[in-house]
Design a protein around this nucleic acid. Structure first.
Length: 877
RNA sequence: GGACGUUUAGCUCAGUUGGUAGAGCAUUCGCUUGACGUGCGAAGGGUCAGCGGUUCGAGUCCGUUAACGUCCACCA
């Protein structure tokens, strides 16, 4: 630190250097060590080809605060970093890149494509980890994992095999969500419902052997081609007689039956529903109940297939237009309504989802969900804030089977093998080369890959080498805290919990700290399409990682969204600068002064005051962090540093040092400055690691700050409470004098004369130098009640003292009297309130005695003040 | 349709087991103070969304209403 020249903190000169220092020192690396209590966090893995956004920055900051705090408390801390292969997202990016080169997936073939994808991963995979480092994340990079590395893949295969053998996995034809753009199935959780404008077409289906029609309404006329029934509610008088009858499917001429089913709501639409089991989840269920044929009329790319008759080959929307036109021509369109309805879209690409019957792999969820519900109900896993438990339960109570197969190449290939000879299905973690039944070698592996979240669900234990019985697993699993946003509770948190319980028999983590979204200054969600995203790296460049971290950690509470603003960032940067300058000052005054690790014996009252405050803030901050109230903790440290330490203690120390540089008192003050600064650096380190470590190292030290012991509550400091309170009287007096001076337009540059009347003359006498300097007064005179004073004095009344300032020339009696009367009114109100409480027998009986004592104290104080004030008001008459 | 969140100073937000409200920014006034103007000293500004209840006491707990927002389900 160039303490002679630099007046402002330069984060650019510090952050990379300090990060390298930590890395070189191996402070992030952890060994399993049974003699120490473990504390572990597994990082939610960002997408391997992604870029750091503010959401990550928040997430990582919170984790790093917890890890650094626990590390300093002496825990054996481990923070495991890693990245996710992000199946759809990455595959889509690679496909887009290939397209630029005039290539397609299909042209390259599976192996060729995967080669390209791995190249892509190698090129871009480090970007995000480098960015995480910029934030100061103290994770153990020697344990960095990738969801598709060998270790994780082993876990994925093991889990697949176990679930299969347990009968919890099945392959079957079910209705799934199909994205025609990504050309893959996606799970229910991956469908976003967006309101879109559409139409409601009322279509007449002729009844067989009749002139009559039955009218249905649909938003997707093209699915008509796959209709295999019409359903009505069995209680519906209008249609009851038609149940069991047959209608003719328009355009196709097929006979379809009319069935009765409770699913149909008589009041909606026409009360009759076309049933397309292959293209609607509800219809699929109806189809199962009535054993209806399933006719799929669409291809994977959203064009109509051979079952679509003359519409074959047309895109689904083109087919829709043609079908409507043709129906119109036949006079079968009764009416068309404009409507707004919710349309399922792909969460990745935004394309309208096509529900479609398809053969896929599913995880049976019911049995897996039960222990996951229980462990949260019983408090084994705790959500912070707890309201998210409700959302968690709601999802699990209504859970449906999880479609885990994806028609992608980038991901874990499903370890299922099929025999071409006998059709046998074999599931194995090892490659299968011959059939276990017929010994044929005509074996092919399933072409599909697994949902990204399938591997992510195993993350908390796969990173430790599960299913092997590793030291890491034993020491660090279950992990302590998972930190993540509320947006992926369903995708991820739920699945990790049931997976952990099922496969390891243990919960994956004890606490789930949920944070909100980072929004822009207008409160909008940051998104690529809006272009309102703020790049954390640019912010770090301009303001520093410490400032960014502090901004993200303060002024919000768990689970709530936070608005990102430049103003807050500036305030955080200014805070860093404030600390830097405090340290610079201490270097100037106490450099080469070796601090005695034991505090000096001759502590002054102001020393005891700051130690008492420090002790209190230490205790509170530790409690707050333990309760995940990181924002509160940061705020308290901020206030202590800025207000108590910088604005008061350092100012007091200046006066002490100026008194007599050689004295023992001055030596003690120098010790104190260094001691308190060091405690401050420790307290703040988890929040602002770079600047604190940097300053720490400019003072004599035995260890790096990152592993220094976090301050603890000290009884010897707590014992200073009484004296500390006495010193508060002096602070109050100084504040009151300054206040009055400002009011009276008596600038601080003008020296004034003061007399003080108090019941605590010894305190005021011993600290008179502070009062004189900090309110620019000539030596104060302590006077007794009733002492003779100059005629025209302004009086300042505090609880503990009356301060008289002779300043006839400044005094406007009338104005002064008005002010005093106003003050009297305020005090009177406070007094009355206290009095009324004390007159209330219920209060006296029921309120805790400490509260009663406090109120009594207030009443007495206010009474004294009132007396003083009224005397002064009288004098002014 | 169901659930949840928010509503506190001009703005953005804190408020830890209930003990008559705080910060940052903004505004106004005063400071060329030997760490820092990215600073120092001060001031103004709030019936804590409305109503009702529990309590000696409610921003804090319960009920209800309103506005805004989010999530889940989903109507063919």
């Amino acid at each position: 630190m160039d303490k002679q020249i630099a007046k402002a903190y330069d984060h650019k000169a510090v952050e990379d250097k300090i990060y390298k220092f930590w890395l070189d020192g191996g402070y992030f690396r952890t060994k399993a060590d049974k003699s120490k209590k473990p504390y572990s966090i597994v990082m939610p893995p960002p997408n391997v080809t992604g870029k750091l956004h503010m959401g990550h920055a928040l997430d990582q900051t919170l984790q790093d605060i917890l890890i650094r705090f626990k590390r300093m408390q002496g825990y054996n801390t481990l923070w495991v970093p890693g990245v996710d292969h992000a199946a759809i997202a990455t595959e889509a990016k690679v496909v887009a890149k290939l397209k630029e080169e005039g290539l397609s997936k299909e042209q390259l073939g599976r192996e060729g494509f995967l080669k390209k994808a791995f190249e892509w991963k190698e090129n871009y995979g480090n970007i995000i980890t480098d960015q995480i480092k910029k934030l100061g994340a103290s994770c153990d990079w020697s344990r960095e994992r990738f969801t598709m590395d060998q270790m994780c893949t082993k876990a994925v295969n093991e889990v697949f095999v176990r679930l299969y053998e347990k009968g919890l996995l099945y392959k079957g034809e079910r209705i799934i969500n199909w994205c025609t753009k990504c050309k893959t199935s996606i799970s229910d959780a991956e469908v976003d419902f967006n309101e879109k404008a559409g139409h409601f077409w009322y279509i007449k289906y002729p009844l067989e052997n009749s002139e009559d029609y039955i009218e249905i309404a649909t938003t997707r006329p093209e699915t008509l081609l796959g209709d295999t029934a019409i359903a009505v509610n069995p209680t519906d008088q209008r249609y009851r007689h038609l149940i069991g009858k047959t209608a003719i499917l328009p355009l196709m001429g097929r006979s379809i039956t009319i069935v009765g089913d409770d699913y149909v709501e008589p009041d909606f639409g026409t009360g009759a529903v076309k049933i397309t089991p292959a293209h609607d989840p509800n219809d699929f269920e109806v189809g199962l109940r009535h054993k209806l044929p399933i006719i799929c009329v669409m291809n994977e790319d959203g064009t109509m297939n051979e079952n679509a008759g003359v519409y074959k080959g047309l895109d689904r929307y083109e087919a829709r237009k043609r079908i409507v036109k043709d129906l119109k021509a036949l006079g079968l369109i009764a009416k068309v309504e404009d409507i707004h309805h919710n349309v399922g879209t792909c969460y990745r690409c935004g394309e309208t989802i096509e529900p479609m019957v398809s053969e896929q792999w599913f995880v049976k969820m019911h049995d897996l969900a039960q222990p996951a519900i229980k462990c949260v109900q019983e408090g084994e896993v705790r959500f912070i804030p707890s309201r998210f438990e409700k959302i968690y339960f709601n999802w699990l109570y209504n859970i449906k089977d999880w479609c885990i197969s994806r028609q992608l190449w980038w991901g874990h290939r499903i370890p299922a093998y099929y025999c071409a000879e006998c059709g046998n299905t074999m599931v194995s973690g090892e490659e299968v080369t011959s059939c276990s039944k017929c010994h044929s070698t005509e074996i092919s592996q399933d072409e599909n890959t697994l949902d990204t979240w399938f591997s992510a669900a195993l993350w908390p234990f796969s990173v430790f080498g599960w299913p092997d019985d590793t030291e890491d697993l034993e020491q660090f699993y279950p992990t302590d805290t998972l930190v993540t946003g509320y947006d992926i509770i369903f995708f991820w948190v739920v699945r990790m919990i049931f997976s952990g319980l099922e496969h390891t028999g243990q919960i994956p983590f004890k606490n789930v700290l949920i944070h909100g979204l980072v929004r822009d200054a207008q409160g909008r969600k940051m998104s690529k399409s809006l272009g309102n995203g703020i790049d954390p790296i640019e912010i770090i460049e301009e303001y520093g990682a410490d400032a960014l971290r502090f901004t993200l950690a303060t002024g919000n509470s768990p689970g709530n969204d936070l608005r990102f603003s430049e103003e807050k960032l500036m305030a955080s940067r200014n805070f860093a600068n404030k600390i830097f300058n405090a340290a610079r000052f201490i270097h100037m005054k106490a450099d080469s002064f070796s601090v005695n690790p034991d505090l000096p014996e001759n502590l002054q009252i102001e020393d005891k005051w700051i130690l008492s405050k420090l002790n209190k803030v230490t205790q509170e901050v530790t409690g707050n962090i333990d309760k995940f109230e990181l924002g509160l903790a940061a705020q308290k440290i901020y206030d202590f540093i800025w207000d108590d330490f910088c604005d008061w203690y350092i100012e007091l120390a200046k006066i002490r040092l100026a008194q007599d540089k050689q004295s023992k008192v001055a030596d003690a003050t120098r010790s104190m400055l260094i001691f308190v600064l060091q405690q401050i650096l420790k307290l703040l380190h988890p929040f602002m690691p770079f600047i604190t470590e940097e300053i720490w190292q400019t003072f004599p030290h035995t260890t790096a700050l990152i592993i220094a012991k976090y301050p603890e509550h000290e009884q010897k400091f707590a014992d200073f409470a009484e004296e500390s309170e006495k010193f508060e009287m002096i602070i109050k007096a100084i504040k009151a004098i300054r206040n009055k001076r400002a009011e009276m337009n008596a600038p601080m540059s003008k020296k004034i004369k003061m007399y003080i009347e108090t019941e605590h003359p010894e305190i005021f006498a011993s600290t008179s130098i502070f009062i004189e300097r900090l309110s620019n007064s000539s030596p104060i005179e302590l006077v007794q009640s009733g002492a003779r004073l100059p005629d025209d004095v302004i009086t300042i009344v505090t609880t503990d003292a009356k301060v008289f300032i002779p300043s006839a020339e400044l005094l406007d009696k009338e104005e002064e009297r008005t002010k005093l009367q106003k003050a009297y009114g305020h005090v009177q109100k406070e007094y009355d309130l206290a009095e009324s409480k004390l007159a209330n027998a219920n209060f006296l009986n029921k309120a805790p005695s400490s509260v009663v004592e406090k109120v009594k104290q207030t009443r007495d104080d206010m009474k004294k003040k009132l007396e003083n004030l009224s005397m002064e008001i009288d004098k002014l008459k």
